[in-house]
Design a protein around this nucleic acid. Structure first.
Lengths: 216, 216
DNA sequence: GTCTATAGTACGATAGAC
DNA sequence: GTCTATCGTACTATAGAC
């Protein structure tokens, strides 16, 4: 990949993270990369495609790590079904790792970029999103079904939905958490996120179907 | 409030829901409302202010219902601390209700609007957001502390963070759930969301601090 | 592979008529 | 309270030189 293309993706990530897809123009992306406006269209064909390339470049390694953890856990388990904790960690753990820098503190760029990617991609590129994550969905739904043999497909789907929604909330609210200096030191950022992963595993253990107030 | 102002807020809600703050121009908002561009600046002073007025109008009743549920539960409990399930329902239940129309099916406009409001407001209007939700934060953090007397402030804060992040994920992913016709009928939409509320209550019951893989 | 130049359109805000 | 008209700026995309 050419230097210019690399630079363009870098400045696009920074700007998209701060202001979202519609909030940034290709002129500004090119200027920040020290390139010309036309270079964006040459390398990416369109602004839409630039967004998708960023999404794939960021989400690809996350999915790879998910599959690595799932495969490793399966190897360790022999033929036994996996625990829900292990499945939850394999799905959400790799995302949490992206939000944390090498010192264990919040990585603001990644937090904001992942937030934008997770919220705006479904609205702008529904088809491409579903295609890109089809394998992840299928493999984790299958793992859940194996670990919950007494659950029918809607129950599996409801639990998978909880996993995805809990992961999404973690990413979106990670920025508020990183900016809250109430009584949480920056060192606790990672601990709190990891505790949320474990809590999510506990949440899908529960066979709950009714709500706490008791309505049907 | 004048008819024109009402119309402008309505069309702004619809357009912001679809394309976000930066994705919509005041010209288009005015056109959709059958008014002139200048009417937006007359009634709201700026596009930013229009967004904030929409946020307050949508979030105000949600907060009111939260306080109502919390107050009702406290009255019912006498002086005893509330269960975590009741606190969770008081905080998240009113948001879930907004996502569902009178037939119990997904309300696409509200789902998308709440998503945009929850994700973009913290990034664009951090100060105003914190001020608007200060009372909610304080009252629910206090209720949690009363119900978890053995927890220190960071532990309370970590649980409160989980509540907020689970709620955020529910809203953001509600759209994907409403569009998934795999094996979930539209009638199940409400059931799944409510089951997520109960699961979240179960999640914050847990005294978990370490993650499932056992690292520090 | 990167540039200049430009086409065609949209942006937010405001001044001033009515 | 709502309009027209307009300022200055920004937008995506493309054609064509180098």
């Amino acid at each position: 990949m050419s230097d210019t293309k690399e630079e363009l993706m870098g400045s696009a990530e920074r700007l998209f993270a701060e202001r979202g897809f519609a909030g940034v123009g290709i002129r500004e992306i090119a200027r920040a990369a020290g390139a010309n406006t036309a270079a964006v269209n040459y390398h990416f064909e369109s602004k839409e495609n630039l967004w998708l390339e960023i999404m794939r470049r960021r989400a690809g390694p996350v999915n790879a790590e998910r599959f690595r953890r799932l495969g490793e856990a399966k190897a360790r388990a022999g033929g036994d079904p996996l625990s829900l904790g292990v499945i939850t960690d394999a799905l959400i753990g790799p995302v949490v790792d992206v939000l944390i820098d090498e010192k264990g503190e919040p990585d603001q760029l990644s937090i904001r970029l992942m937030t934008r990617l997770m919220v705006e991609t479904p609205m702008l590129f529904r088809e491409e999103l579903l295609e890109f994550f089809a394998e992840t969905r299928d493999r984790f739904a299958a793992a859940l079904a194996e670990s919950l043999p007494h659950c029918n497909p809607p129950e599996i789907q409801a639990r998978f939905f909880y996993l995805v929604s809990a992961m999404t909330g973690l990413v979106v609210q990670a920025e508020m958490l990183s900016g809250a200096n109430d009584c949480l030191p920056a060192k606790a950022f990672r601990e709190v996120l990891l505790s949320c992963v474990s809590r999510t595993a506990a949440a899908i253990e529960s066979p709950i179907l009714a709500n706490v107030r008791g309505q049907p």
